[in-house]
Amino acid sequence: MEHMELPEDWFVTAWPDGWDFEKDDYSEPDVRQVGYILVPAGFSLVLHPPGSDDTQSLIMRFEVADGELLLRELYAIGVDLAEWIDVLVADLPPETWRDLALREITTFLTSPERRSQQALAGAESQTVLTGQAARKKPRGRSSKRYRITTEHLERVAKTYQRALEAGTPPTMSVAEKFGVAHSTAAKWVGAARRSGLIPNSQ
């Protein structure tokens, strides 16, 4: 992978599918080989456009199939994808996305500090994971604080299932439903799955 500098004001990170932000042991996810690199079988590259806060993201979901890293999905949370796609392509040409994804996910997997920062961001949804200063409290996010009860996880699971049935990204739908960051929604989905409210196959 060639060294690449991110354009000014872009922030990017990555994490494996189903990553549990509350775990302390940070066990390794299921990995696949891409060239000479081992990466998770599925993971997301998360990009915050210039001027955005951490409720506004472009998400690229990658999967490994037959030794190749494939971009399976590109969607937006809190920003208009149609509005930002031209900015994304101009600042980060599509031919760089694969190498950027590999760089970020291998950094995540090999850096305990990055994992700890990622866990903190999953819990607080405000920490910048690359060690930069924490962002200001995002505008437009629900100020309601949620207790992680069985009833709450049941609502999360119901939202997740409805999104699956509708063919929309389920974790994104949870984030939008409750007005929280994608990383917080992912934490709740993981808790609902561990509670048996969401099947492991989904």
Rank of each mutant, 00 (worst) to 15 (best):
W84R: 13
A76H: 04
A101L: 03
G67E: 05
L100H: 07
F62H: 09
Q56W: 02
Q56T: 09
Q56S: 11
W97N: 09
E73Q: 14
D91W: 03
E83F: 10
L102G: 06
W97F: 08
D53H: 10
G67S: 09
R72C: 05
A101K: 04
L71E: 11
I77C: 05
L69F: 04
R61D: 13
P50W: 05
L47G: 01
D86Q: 12
R98G: 00
A65T: 15
V64K: 04
L69C: 03
A76Y: 04
I77M: 10
G78C: 14
P49K: 03
V89C: 08
A65Y: 10
R98I: 01
L92R: 02
R72E: 08
F62P: 04
I77D: 10
I77K: 06
L71T: 12
L70I: 13
H48A: 07
V87H: 13
L88R: 09
L58T: 05
I77P: 01
D54V: 08
L58G: 04
E63Q: 10
P94E: 14
W84E: 15
A76K: 06
V79N: 02
D53E: 06
Y75Q: 08
P93Y: 06
L81R: 11
V46N: 00
D66L: 07
I59P: 01
V79E: 02
A65V: 15
L71K: 12
G51V: 06
L47S: 04
V89G: 05
G51A: 01
V89W: 06
A76P: 04
Q56C: 08
I59S: 06
M60G: 01
L81V: 05
R61M: 12
S52K: 03
A82M: 15
D66P: 01
L102W: 06
T96G: 00
